[in-house]
Design a protein around this nucleic acid. Sequence first.
DNA 1: CTACTTTCGCAACGCTGTTGCCAAAGTGCA
DNA 2: TGCACTTTGGCAACAGCGTTGCGAAAGTAG
Lengths: 389, 389
Amino acid sequence: MTDGVDGGLSRTAGGCGRGVASAAAGALGGVNLGALRSHNTALVLDLLRTAGTEGISRLELAERTGLTPQAVSKITARLREEGLVAEAGRRASTGGKPRTVLRLVPEAGHAVGVHLDRDELTAVLCDLTGAVVAQRGTPLDLGAGAETVVERAVREVGALVAGGGRPGALLGVGVALPGPLDHRRGVLHRVTGLPEWNGFPLRDVLARRLSLPVVVDKDTNAAALGLAVGDEAAPFTSFAYLHFGAGLGGGLVIGGAVHRGTRTGAGEFGHQVVQLDGPPCGCGNRGCVEALCLAAVARGEPAEAARVLGVAAGNLVALLDVDLLLLGGRTVAAAPETFVRGVTAVLDERARRAGAEAVPVRLASGGERGVAEGAAQLLLAPLFGRAEG
Amino acid sequence: MTDGVDGGLSRTAGGCGRGVASAAAGALGGVNLGALRSHNTALVLDLLRTAGTEGISRLELAERTGLTPQAVSKITARLREEGLVAEAGRRASTGGKPRTVLRLVPEAGHAVGVHLDRDELTAVLCDLTGAVVAQRGTPLDLGAGAETVVERAVREVGALVAGGGRPGALLGVGVALPGPLDHRRGVLHRVTGLPEWNGFPLRDVLARRLSLPVVVDKDTNAAALGLAVGDEAAPFTSFAYLHFGAGLGGGLVIGGAVHRGTRTGAGEFGHQVVQLDGPPCGCGNRGCVEALCLAAVARGEPAEAARVLGVAAGNLVALLDVDLLLLGGRTVAAAPETFVRGVTAVLDERARRAGAEAVPVRLASGGERGVAEGAAQLLLAPLFGRAEG
DNA sequence: CTACTTTCGCAACGCTGTTGCCAAAGTGCA
DNA sequence: TGCACTTTGGCAACAGCGTTGCGAAAGTAG
């Protein structure tokens, strides 16, 4: 019952395994002392992570968390004992004893992130800070059947982990892939165009094969999580990530946490209808943004695609009142300025009419590796109190 | 510093006044023992509120919260001492000592809700359970100038409160009104069409005049909060409320809490663009749902209005993955079946194509008083741990 | 009447963050 | 060089939270 014996990492990892003593059991909401400790510890770890190599002092931690300095001292003392935190020099004095700088020990834990895309597999090994310490990639046909794909994934993850005798704990494996799925149970629905995946319990199968905790999520959600945890969206905590590659999708981050909705369906952006009775889309609807934007790109009119994307993005911003819009994906990367400017123009115009300030639009620099990194964050983020939306 | 001395209600009311000891001070996130107690107390109160007159036993409370029975006993003992909770009979025995049923004491506290609409003012006095115990209404011209409107509101609230010598504490006044505003600071932006309200610090002015805590929010948010707290949305905790009256607006509830966004702008549904380069709307955009739906209604084609509404609602459901759609407002009330069926049809079709289950569509029975009741909940809800989204 | 089940409070406990106090480690000035 | 002052941060005692062990209370079943 007590959770003090097992060393460090597993304690606050509420996302995958057993989680904290009793409070995390379901959405009950009752908070006991164990949960309180986990929460405050996660908060401190998150600030340490955000501080990066620069580090942060105990007193700053106290100010930022609202806890007393003494409470922070106790928490950091525990973390130092567990090897998650180390002292890293001291700041310049301001007339008294200089502050001791603390920093997260990156090697204290690792997580694997796997991106199963339609035509390739990317796997990364990340340390506690989210930095990639090893990477592998291989072509893959997601339609080649579950057994083949699982086999390949197991092999890649194995090779990645075997690479070096790392001291820290291996927290688990995060897997990101397209198509509707249930991230809570880790079961796939019908991955678009690949009916053989329907109902496949990917999480449990992989967890058994790897003997590691596994978390499964949509690719766009993973990408959004990666951006939320990184400093890409700073200083904002609510934003939308729009991914325009072979298709058009989105991920929502609200209050620093990914909003997945009840059925992991949230962020379904590509099939937002912006033209009543418009041209038919592959999904069966008419006038979807994805269809319109793809058509415009195919016609060689990226500016028009950007304008349409801007209209749909404007709808999203108006509906959710987020702070920021991040754009990414291959198609955007092909003409980044066109898309950022085009979307910005629509949003600016709309904000101007409403008498409000426009929401900034930025390019998500993540690149192709971003989804895999975000997948690793599915295991890392819970340590820092960024579990669910 | 200790918060044990002041009796009961003010302690957990984190939404308006000073809030709990230290944890509520900003979005710091550090949780101390006082905050933990408040949280668990609020949780218990919420379950008691939900149980209504039927009541709930200590052991059920323990099961539902995840706390131990003994912890629940301590919490309820405090609440009974403070007069918020009372014993109310006992259940049938299941072979041993029968469970004692507890219930919330409705008269232990009250809150006023004021709905400032464009042409009328509705004010209600609600008890702890949210039930209306007194009501007043008067015609009002929201464009008659700030001083006049404030004066009228003060008089109405005064008359409502003076009505009876109620024993319980008066928690404060919630005010709901249209147009963009900042609910955190209680300052209005430009209420649509009424520029003289621009920048008016309604919350502080009213709080000073009434010597009561005041909370200000958008009318649609208040309505959504009222629905979230009532049993209208049960058993779902994430839903969208679409209000189609003189205009078209929305309120979002995610995980039981109202999602307001960073600038209280979330839920802006009327000006979602669903027809690229469609007919111009008063807001300056083209092809807004509101414009299209209003035009259809004006043409005497409510079914077409329902279809368009359904398309926009489908976008919302796809984007947020909520559990439920609630429809309300005068225009809907004029042809309820047409709208519920029309919207349902669009959602069903879309869900069928996606191979998912359709989100249910219901009529929000709130009626015209719903917004005022929701406004009162702006003060009541924080007691039950339903503060922010 | 006895045995059993179930509810629920009392008392002791472990753990949390908090408070009071003091040592440590600097700066600034005489 | 030495002293006063400022600031950091640990030690110890403390109050308050939920938890555990146990027993009284209040029913049912035979």
